[in-house]
Design a protein around this nucleic acid. Sequence first.
DNA 1: ATCCCGAGGG
DNA 2: CCCTCTGGAT
Length: 218
Amino acid sequence: MGIITKRSSKKVRANEILIRLKRLYPDAVCSLDYETPVQLLVAVILSAQCTDERVNMVTPKLFARFPDAIAMANADLDELMELVHSTGFYRNKAKNIRGACEMIMRDFDGKVPNTMDSLLKLPGVARKTANVVLAHAYGINAGVTVDTHVKRLTKRLGLTKFDEPLKVERDLMSLLPQRDWENWSIRIIYHGRAVCNARKPACDRCDLADLCPSAPKT
DNA sequence: ATCCCGAGGG
DNA sequence: CCCTCTGGAT
């Protein structure tokens, strides 16, 4: 089989998986709670190595105390650390949140930037965070959000052989239509939480098993 | 490659 | 105890 055929059949399979995911999780949405682009940015920074559920437990108080970029840029670091403590990595997260908001005030006219290059200048922001903010705050599909779930499932599904997030992202960008990049990630994450979890994937009740090279043959 | 870090599951 | 949870910087 030639390389072209091999790649296009992989694309066909990726898009079949996409169709199934839409059917399985028709109402999937970003599960972080936020009102504004800055609040989304902060919530995504907090979500590192932490469940969205826990992030949503701390953000109500956090956003009540520091509602916008001005407030967070001028926040007392110790108070900020205390408010985000239970999400883990609280020192770095507090510093990054304040640092990012300082930069937003100083260099970006008080608004969360809407380009990948600018977002990547913010402390604590790399492609994963930038992709989420661009997609959900601005409706811009700059790339595919690759987190631990997306990486794990994409690899198990045989759609990438890489571990590096950027290479996984490039593979997905070449396989999926651009308009579906973000909903792929959201639904893959749902599936990763509900069925294809890290420790013990439930292949026996997985609706993607027949399309998955990692599932046991029945 | 290693560090940051809390919380929950097994 | 070890692993994992929507990562990023050094």
